[in-house]
Nucleic acid binder design. Structure first.
Lengths: 107, 107
DNA sequence: AAATAATTTAAGCGAATGCTTAACTAACCG
DNA sequence: CGGTTAGTTAAGCATTCGCTTAAATTATTT
């Protein structure tokens, strides 16, 4: 097999810019592959492989409709990312507050 | 060169579990490499390389102190991740609401 | 000055990643 | 049926990744 396991890890799945763009694109509703692939300068199989990785990560689900396959966004696993990054929010607030104070004191 | 550019992309930087763990670890304050590396079953150079990638992504900064190098968390680039993922929050709210409704109607 | 400690740099290696082209499968249409 | 459309699977390839061990660098200690 050539692309067997295709990491089910969310962070890995969203690491690739094309995959993030696909997800962004899916926010406007479910779409068939060809339409989804349209803005990318990349072969269809490449997109198909990205979709499979997103599928394995649970970020996307597919449904057959005639001869096309509709892909639909499933954002729920992204909560994992949201929760992880949220733990850092107090830190950057603090950093930005400090920067603000500095700028106030040194105008 | 062996590890030249080391992608400055944030999403790439946080894709690796070890690097996320390092960041998590740094939330408790700045630390020298050896201490930072302690819980990982991995050689010191490996950790050093991860730190360099985090550095390139701007997620971490270093400061020399005697013969050790203190690494400090800089969470600000994580806002990029936070902002990206935030765009999906309305979607999963919707999904979870639907799930809640379903469970209420099918107890 | 020699020894030791903290860390990085260098080189190399196997595995994973992102892509390609070619071949396949399945659904629709004349 | 035969042809076209939509998509996936397969195979291969170059690059990147994450790691290792060995050597180099820099700072402290004796």
């Amino acid at each position: 097999m050539s692309r067997p396991v295709a990491s089910a890890d969310i962070f890995q799945a969203i690491a690739d810019p094309t995959r993030r763009a696909i997800l962004d694109r899916l926010r406007s509703g479910e779409q068939p592959v060809k339409q989804l692939a349209e803005p990318f300068e990349m072969s269809l199989p490449a997109i198909s492989q990205h979709l499979q990785i997103l599928c394995n990560a649970g970020l996307v689900s597919q449904q057959k409709s005639g001869r096309q396959r509709l892909y639909r966004l499933n954002p729920i696993p992204l909560r994992q990312v949201s929760e992880w990054v949220a733990r850092y929010e107090p830190f950057w607030q603090q950093k930005l507050d400090a920067l603000g104070d500095y700028l106030e004191e040194n105008p």
